[in-house]
Amino acid sequence: MSAESVSCTVKSPVALQIGDAVSDSSRPGVYITDITLAEPVNIQEISFKNFYTAYLTVRLQRRHGSTASKWVTCLKNYCLMGNPHAEAGSHDYFSIYRQQMSTEPDNVTTVRLILRQPSSEWLSFSIEEINIYPCTKEDSERDVPAWLSTLTPVDEPLDLKGLPDPETVSSSIQQMWALTEIMQASQTAASIGRFDVEGAYDVKLLSYT
């Protein structure tokens, strides 16, 4: 999470459209954005801010030694907006983690994002602020929070049987406790509730900024 994002080039999106893009009044429902990575990367996380995209498919091109690169789909029609005709999710921040992908995103050279928006409500759609984060090195693996490995892959059905074992929960609380300690260190003093400055509160005009 704290790792630096890798350098990459995000190409401008290409619309998938039947007919002439300029003269036709209908708007495209699919855009494809390619992201080329400077060097092959083992991807940990792809994060972005949505702009009216309803479904996202991620395809990867991986390098296998000297053999020809192959395209694989690692995430299919991931839902970003529950109802494509309404706002919820339209501006949300998302992260796709390695564990959610159906194929290991290792040695990736190109990422292809296929964006879909079936609703004609919106004039355009895209995704913004794309960042790709690499896997952290093997020896620092214990720094990766445990919850990362418990993510459920999207294609697998959620296991909803029963509640977690109290022992497991209490042991995971230890880790939260550590988090709490960090938060505490940065805690600011509680507000004392005064609104005046040294007893004075002679407000003349309100500022517009």
């Binding site: 040294e198 509160y201 002679d202 309100l206």
Partner: peptide, 9 residues
């Protein structure tokens, strides 16, 4: 809403 006031000191 915000404003600014002269401090006494």
């Amino acid at each position: 809403p915000k404003s600014s006031i002269q401090s006494k000191s």
